[in-house]
Amino acid sequence: MQFEHLGASPRIHPDAVVAATAVISGDVTIGADSQVLHGAVITAEGGAITIGANVIVMENALIRATTANPVHIGDHTLVGPMASISGATIGDEVFLATGTRIFNGARIGDRSEVRINAVVHLRTHLAEETVVPIAWVAVGEPVRLLPPDRHEEIWAAQQELDFPGYVFGLDRETPDLMVQLTERYGRSLARHAEDRRLD
């Protein structure tokens, strides 16, 4: 399914294949010989999404761009089933395994691997050919690769990265943080009410 969102329509190369149950919304460009499988959602929420050539986006993957953080995915990259990319730049020949999570402002260098259920956190930069092990967390700049059982170290780095401030423009110490966050984000998402299905 393809949707016009905020006046922008997807541009899909004629040699790309998009499954009938995938959702492509807004300012999305998909390159030659790319494949988008069933249940994938690629949604440009005010920022552009550019997917290169020979990219595979597998079942139920989510790719979301924001006004502040567009998405770029380089050529010959594989986005695994149930992977999530939000506002990140992904290089060429990158492998994002099943269940990986890539957050806003992250940059992943060419030929890197983010293995099953691993996380690349907010504004974290991976050099070329970096490997994030299964279920580990890449966090900070310079990057630290940490196993999930080192929560206190991960949390310390996350606090410096300021997720609510960077993504939602809200101070973490706001007394009614979730009230303000959900109301603000809800107003932004409500812009989909005016979307127009194209196919």
Rank of each mutant, 00 (worst) to 15 (best):
Y166N: 12
G105R: 10
A16R: 10
A106L: 01
G74W: 07
A20C: 10
S86Y: 10
P81R: 10
Q158P: 08
T124Y: 00
A16W: 11
V17T: 15
L161C: 07
D92N: 15
R150N: 06
I116A: 04
A138N: 01
A83G: 10
L146F: 14
V41C: 09
E194K: 05
A65I: 07
E93G: 04
E129F: 02
I108K: 00
I108R: 04
R11Q: 13
P14E: 13
F3S: 00
V18P: 04
H38R: 07
I30K: 12
A20L: 13
I85L: 10
W155Q: 10
L37M: 15
L78S: 02
A68Y: 03
I56H: 01
V120H: 04
G186P: 03
P81C: 07
V41L: 09
Q159S: 11
V55D: 07
V139N: 14
T77F: 02
V131K: 06
V17G: 08
Q35C: 01
G52F: 01
I134W: 01
A135F: 06
Q159Y: 06
R150E: 15
G52S: 05
V79Y: 00
I102V: 15
A156D: 14
Y185Q: 08
V143T: 13
P142K: 09
A83V: 03
R191Q: 14
I30H: 12
L145Y: 10
I116N: 07
D195C: 11
E4M: 11
G52E: 00
I63N: 13
S25Q: 15
R187N: 02
D27R: 12
A68W: 07
Q180E: 15
L126A: 12
Q2M: 09
V36N: 00
G74Q: 10
A118W: 02
A127H: 10
G26Y: 14
V71G: 03
T98L: 01
A106M: 04
R101S: 07
T29E: 14
T100Q: 02
T43L: 11
I90W: 05
A127L: 11
E194A: 11
R150A: 07
M1A: 14
L161R: 14
H151L: 08
S188D: 12
L96Y: 00
T43M: 12
A156W: 07
G39K: 01
G80A: 09
H125A: 13
L37D: 11
V137G: 09
A135K: 07
V120S: 02
A40W: 02
V71N: 03
I49N: 03
L126P: 12
S84A: 07
S112I: 02
E93W: 11
T130W: 05
R196M: 05
G99H: 00
T124M: 03
V120C: 01
H38G: 03
A19L: 13
L37E: 13
